[in-house]
Nucleic acid binder design. Structure first.
Lengths: 108, 108
DNA sequence: AAGTGAGCTTTATGATATAAAGTGTTTTGT
DNA sequence: ACAAAACACTTTATATCATAAAGCTCACTT
């Protein structure tokens, strides 16, 4: 019922959105990192990154905690188990869909 | 200067957007097809598909032509050379970025 | 003690995806 | 033969959402 192209059209935007895809993919590599590092890595503006992180946190994909380091506040961002699973499944799905699309022949 | 994650964050939304990604990927397989078939294949509403096709056409990635078949109007959609190149490059880039991200180690 | 900069968060704005309504033609029912 | 429904879309309206701009708090400087 849900074919390749319908799955493409219905990709989860929470993860698929470029900025959040970058953040989640980075976090999957880093495990844990701080706000400013993530900002440098992704090139996002602070406000932008902040909003995207909130959305990811609301969805339970990341968890951030504030610390005081050298008398300055620092936000550390952790990817959750759910976040790690979600981004891994996303990338697998993308790869599968790409392969399926390449081998697809008109036969419904 | 532009690392993996910045490239992810800056993916071209014209192609990356799920509905258009589905349409372009389908057209890359089909070569040419009609509006209603594309609609069935992607599961998009008519209005939705119409708007997305317009954007792709404005960008020169597809070209549609109207015909009268069995006394009914039928819109045929062709992918252009540019469209074919763009979607191929998109998928290659995605694959590359995924691989690069997987092998990425913190070293700037 | 006023000013500055760091490290964010919140609000405002502008873009855009989708849903709803509309258009023109053809077919069907009576 | 005429109204009504069905096709095959397109156009407009709305609601979501990404990003930019402004704001906030605390520390440090002068």
């Amino acid at each position: 019922m849900n074919n390749i192209f319908q799955e493409l059209a219905n990709l989860d935007r929470l993860i698929h959105e470029p900025a959040r895809l970058a953040v989640l993919t980075a976090l999957a590599s880093c495990q844990k990192t701080d706000f400013l590092f993530l900002q440098r890595l992704t090139g996002l503006s602070a406000g932008n990154l902040s909003v995207h992180l909130s959305k990811l946190e609301d969805a339970g994909l990341v968890k951030s905690e504030k610390k005081i380091v050298a008398k300055r506040t620092q936000t550390h961002v952790n990817i959750t188990e759910e976040g790690r699973d979600s981004i891994a499944r996303y990338w697998e799905k993308i790869e599968t869909l790409r392969n399926d699309a390449e081998n697809w022949k008109l036969d419904e």
